[in-house]
Amino acid sequence: MTAPTPLLSLHNISKRFGGLAVISDVSFDVSAGARMALIGPNGAGKTTIFNLVSGFYQPDEGDIMMEGRAIQTIASRHRIGLGIARSFQNIRLMPHLSVTENIMLGQQARAGGVVELLKPLSFFGHSHWRDEAQALLKDMGLHTYPGEVVANLPYGIRKKIEVVRALVARPKLLLLDEPAAGLNAAETDSLTGFLKRISDTGVTLLVVEHDMGLVRRLCDHVVVLNFGRKIYDGPTANVQNDPLVLEAYLGPRDAASPAKTAEGCHAA
């Protein structure tokens, strides 16, 4: 019996910048429909993994497989066509475009070809692309700002719009780089619900996040990186008791650790 092919799978990936090994021999699978988190201390290589998967960098060693096909040599702009979309740690919406226009940019992967490029989006009435974008904004509860230029909007709204923009390409895999960074508790709650709804439509989520509350509520599976190496790969429920993870976050065990785990108490 063979296991189903994972949606995304990293095989022994290594990446160096000059003499610095940023990613060393990392392998993990993301199965279709999963809600998975990629966590680790600052500088662990989480965003580098995203940049490798979305095609900004090529790995020095190893294979990146999307639905069983090696994609590491495919140009970044063709990867959205394979079903990979992402958001960024610092929001990267187009500041001079309106909300609707940012969403319509997300449709680009489905609107290839010169003919589509030269059809008007708004010139004597609306195109179906614009109608679709506005309908989606309405679905997501963001319809109050259709023509507003993005630079004028509050941070939390822009975060959501960036996710919606990645979503309109109808990706199979959505990479979210610190979606909750800079949000307050209420905004994070709202975002968590929002991401769950997205996941329920069948989109696989891979999330880099420091907010463990969000990770616990959203993700069922966690991969932990430290100094470019994978130190944990398993269910979210067990991650806080893993000795390697505790050491990575809190320092070596013999240095006085405040962690209230069974193992942490034995020195007392």
């Binding site: 702009r77 475009l97 319509m104 490029l117």
Partner: peptide, 20 residues
């Protein structure tokens, strides 16, 4: 047109425009 849209997008952020 969409051409105008991607032109302005490339002006704002060419990396993300490429990714789209």
């Amino acid at each position: 047109t969409r051409f105008g849209l991607v032109m302005r997008a490339a002006h704002d952020d060419d990396v993300v425009t490429d990714l789209m």
